[in-house]
Design a protein around this nucleic acid. Structure first.
Lengths: 337, 337
DNA sequence: TTGTACGCGTTATCAT
DNA sequence: ATGATAACGCGTACAA
């Protein structure tokens, strides 16, 4: 026995369509009729038509998730899968569906698809680049949106991020406290918010310490770029290298080994992320721990908050990071930001 | 200037709502009015409301994609990302949207979400297990569905797959032709269609050759299981090992090295999949090439076919595989199935 | 060729 | 507390 529509359900129970709708949505119904309808609902397999619900009420209980990455990266880069886990887990616990858009073709096309779909109540989008037409378009639309990643200039956007600049400062201060004086920085992908903010933190820490040496080489978060950039920095004479990601720190390790130098005796090294392998490198890598899964959870919760009680302003969440000191800088304690 | 509904568009152009709808959907309209409406359409940013369209016509232009994979496999397995690429690329080229469900919680919950969503015109689902309530539920629903993976017993389902049994036979025949007599097989995950079919092919080839030795050890497609199973087979005395996946073949390589045996002189080894690394192993691995991306493309095309011209029966696609002979079996030529 | 009118399944407003 | 009834935006018979 199955009922496809409220109308059928109404015939089955002997009450009107509206009453059945009230029972399902928790409206004011007498206890007697409520239990009678519930009785029938337990026996038939009724699934409300979300398209109709969306059309009538403007709500569907489904949110969009836009991660403009090639499908390959979704699976190889643990960043996206961890985000995905945190987001979907949190949304599922609130009985909220997820519609996922990956990079099909251009960002404009993706934007168009998302805005056209008309069944989502809100959207979560990854925002890594400083300028991103996809993100701009989402923010310009009237769709409630939460970004993962900061948009520094835009004060009206809701977002979840870590304080890259502060975390970066803590790293550099840690190196300074251990006696490093010529600290090199291998940047992340330029024009991403995270890379630029980490650079800013690096510079601010040095400035505050009155240290004149700005020793930077551009990277792109990959191991290979870290390897290349490390040689540049080593040639300029550094006693410490702060790599913008753990993966690029691995490249630094290889470069230092190639030069037959020792970590940390000749050159101290730090990463950023605290991915699983960081603790098992030789020597174990000092780095900044950011909990990516929590960022996904926080983004989901922020969007749910935005949807449930609209009228409040944008939601901004800065999640804490933690300096994890290991042997690559020969230390032992941990600091929080 | 923007128009949110057909009604607004109608006011803007001076024709009726239905005429605008006809222009958009390619109905019978005079060339004069068509161009007039198109003129306006070019200036305003109109996005049809898919929820309303779906409700009115039963079609939304969005299909669902269900890949119920544990999050862990998401990272390690390029299988899913390759499928995803093929599917989304093909659908995008037909202006069809994709709604993606990954493994959130139980299969029953996922099934419920998919069937409840009411937005999608059809669904593509990965079907690896012999018994899968999610797949059963999808097939039992009236939603047009295409499976990736075979359902041997179910003749009414549409699917895309490779002929695992035939490919497996070709591998074993190849080993036999090179003089192997005690051929071991490390299975894939039991109760998956692919694993059971590859076992069937292994057994059929041996039977046909009148070879009495059935030497099998259970694996689960992973390198680690391959490593363990290889020792079992080596202890039973084999001169060739057919691993059900390239990854498990890597485990076999390690086990053979641990026993200080040589490939292929002491033991020949084959894999299955022809992942990128297979050619760079030492020695390069003989294996079966299956084009996973094409499977995704074929599934998307099959579903589109199902949607556009309903009335025809189920679509069944068996994609070709190719035996790639490399030095792990000391050969040189290639065979097709 | 074009416009009118109805229906898709639901929620929300209004009487009762 | 309950039941008509009007939207929501669109597609599409049907009539003109």
């Amino acid at each position: 026995m199955r009922a496809r529509t409220l109308e059928e359900l109404a015939n089955l129970t002997g009450v009107s369509r509206s009453t059945v709708s009230r029972v399902i949505n928790g409206g004011p119904v007498s206890e007697a009729t409520r239990s009678r309808v519930m009785e029938v609902l337990a026996h038939v397999r009724y699934r409300p038509n979300l398209a109709a619900r969306r059309l009538a009420s403007g709500r569907s209980g489904v949110v969009g998730l836009v991660m403009h990455v090639p499908a390959a990266n979704l699976f190889t880069d643990s960043y996206f899968s961890l985000l995905l886990e945190g987001i979907t887990e949190t949304l599922a616990s609130e009985a909220t569906g997820v519609m996922l858009w990956l990079s099909h073709r251009t960002k404009e096309e993706t934007l168009d698809q998302v805005l056209s779909s008309s069944f989502i109540d809100g959207v979560i989008a990854t925002a890594t680049m400083l300028d991103d037409p996809l993100v701009d378009g989402l923010l310009a639309s009237d769709l409630p949106a939460v970004l993962i990643g900061h948009r520094r200039h835009d004060l009206s956007a809701s977002y979840v991020d870590i304080d890259n600049e502060a975390a970066s400062e803590v790293i550099v201060e840690h190196l300074l406290s251990l006696g490093a004086r010529r600290i090199g920085h291998i940047t992340g992908t330029r024009n991403t918010v995270s890379a630029e903010d980490r650079i800013a933190g690096y510079e601010r820490a040095l400035e505050r310490a009155g240290n004149p040496h700005r020793l930077m080489a551009d990277g792109d978060y990959t191991e290979e770029a870290g390897y290349e950039a490390a040689f540049t920095l080593l040639d300029r004479g550094v006693d410490a290298i702060f790599a913008a990601s753990d993966r690029s720190a691995v490249g630094v390790y290889r470069a230092i080994e190639a030069r037959e130098l020792r970590i940390p005796e000749d050159v101290m090294v730090t990463g950023f992320d605290d991915l699983a392998f960081a603790a098992t490198l030789d020597p174990p890598l000092t780095t900044v721990r950011q909990n990516i899964r929590s960022q996904g959870e926080a983004a989901a919760r922020a969007l749910l908050g935005l949807l449930h009680q609209d009228g409040t302003g944008p939601r901004r969440v800065l999640l804490p990071t933690e300096l994890v000191v290991r042997r690559s800088t020969s230390g032992g304690v941990a600091h929080n930001t």
